[in-house]
């Protein structure tokens, strides 16, 4: 059974239809790269999966939880789904350690000692053990984004959603963040990532989903679909981002 499944999901903002019937299955351990023009609905799709946006029609299942059911427990869902945003949304009033510990204590009900231990391990995993006591405003964008990843990973999510997490970074900082993602991929983490890094999508993702005007316009194995796009829209898109 797939870990995430979307069936004919429709999402509107007022009269603007942003998702026009999106269906998608993601298996456990699979890495799906979502690509497409700005405004095609990529972020909205991820946000619907994490119940940050309500949908108007269709069904979303994540890890056995029916997200779209009335009265679904969204906090329980979100504790199992990790999400990292383009703008590194660290809590500015907490240092790195306490950013990671907050949800461990409040949601996972860990003791302070346990949470500290997990936080230390997770922050070390993204290579920032020496920044444990630093505040977000004392870190570079790349470092903040790595902490944001560590904060999500600490919750032991069954799937991670990444929304253009390198788009706001200076070019020289992109590599360090992608490296963390590569390590996660090797560990078998299930991931959905919106990205404009085509090389990364090709080498790391199992599958590529191309969104166009609120629909999944084309999808397939990463290597193949990027080398031989089947539709004119994907061909245009690829030639625009690759040159």
């Amino acid at each position: 059974m797939s870990l995430v499944s979307l069936e004919n999901v429709v999402k509107r903002f007022g009269s603007l239809e942003v998702l026009k019937g999106v269906s998608l299955e993601v298996d456990k351990g699979e890495i799906v790269a979502v690509i497409g023009r700005s405004g095609s609905g990529k972020s909205t799709m991820l946000r619907c999966i994490n119940a940050l946006e309500p949908v108007q029609a269709g069904r979303i299942m994540v890890d056995g939880i029916e997200v779209t059911a009335p009265g679904a427990d969204h906090n329980k869902l979100r504790a199992r789904v990790g999400m990292v945003f383009q703008s590194y949304n660290l809590f500015p009033h907490l240092n790195v350690e306490r950013n990671v510990k907050l949800a461990l204590k409040l949601v996972r009900r860990m003791s302070d000692a346990e949470a500290s231990e997990v936080a230390r391990r997770m922050v070390a995993k993204v290579g920032l053990e020496d920044k444990l006591l630093a505040y977000p405003d004392e870190l570079s964008g790349g470092q903040q984004q790595r902490v944001a990843i560590a904060r999500s990973l600490a919750m032991q999510p069954t799937i991670m959603l990444f929304d253009e997490i390198t788009s706001a970074l200076d070019p020289e900082l992109v590599g360090e963040v992608l490296k963390v993602l590569e390590e996660l991929a090797e560990e078998g983490m299930t991931m959905m990532l919106v990205t404009h890094e085509m090389h990364f999508a090709r080498t790391v993702a199992d599958r590529v989903v191309f969104m166009h005007e609120g629909r999944i316009h084309e999808e397939g194995p990463a290597e193949q679909i990027l080398r031989e796009p089947g539709t004119a829209e994907l061909r245009n898109f690829l030639s625009a981002v690759l040159h």
């Binding site: 994490n50 940050l52 969204h74 906090n75 329980k76 869902l77 979100r78 504790a79 199992r80 789904v81 990790g82 999400m83 945003f85 949304n89 660290l90 809590f91 907050l102 949800a103 409040l106 949601v107 904060r151 999500s152 919750m155």
Partner: peptide, 8 residues
Amino acid sequence: EAGASLGL
């Protein structure tokens, strides 16, 4: 949103 996506 950051708080929500951690399950708070």
